[in-house]
């Protein structure tokens, strides 16, 4: 009988610890943030792919970009837009993406921190719009 109590107590403690993130965060749900488009991005009207595709695949595209640039020596991505016209983009996170989306905090970081993803892009790559306040 003694063992039984020990086992039940052990299982209970485990269950509480295992599910503690749920308890701790209960009632703290926030609405999913909506990324804010910078003026420049609004004016450009279209990104390299339709919005939904960008939302789903931007990380894959960036992964492809870095491999193609660093390992393949390619620098330009040619993409057909909605009208079937071919457009050229320099494959560069800092210069192309952030050249248009000039508001990294509102466009990238907001969702990333909500979703608790921590891409290490910014350990090396630079937000060209960041001035001195970037210093931590």
């Amino acid at each position: 009988m003694n063992e039984k109590i020990k086992i039940i107590a052990g299982v209970a403690i485990f269950a509480v610890i295992f599910t503690c993130p749920l308890w701790i965060n209960m009632g703290k749900a926030k609405e999913a943030p909506v990324p804010v488009l910078a003026e420049k991005a609004k004016a450009a009207k279209a990104c390299i792919l339709p919005k939904d595709e960008m939302r789903a695949k931007h990380m894959k595209i960036l992964d492809g970009w870095r491999n193609s640039v660093v390992r393949d020596g390619q620098r330009i991505h040619m993409v057909k837009d909605a009208d079937g016209k071919e457009k050229e983009y320099e494959m560069s996170l800092s210069n192309t993406c952030l050249g248009c989306h000039t508001n990294k905090a509102e466009f990238c970081d907001k969702c990333h921190s909500y979703a608790s993803v921590n891409p290490y892009c910014w350990d090396c790559h630079v937000d060209p719009n960041a001035k001195k306040e970037a210093s931590l």
Partner: peptide, 21 residues
């Protein structure tokens, strides 16, 4: 080669170097 399992590349049909490279 430079490629590895699961590494994504943009299709070489859709990429090119700079003209002045």
């Amino acid at each position: 080669s430079a490629f590895a399992i699961g590494e994504y590349f943009i299709s070489s049909k859709e990429t090119k170097p700079h003209a002045e490279e």
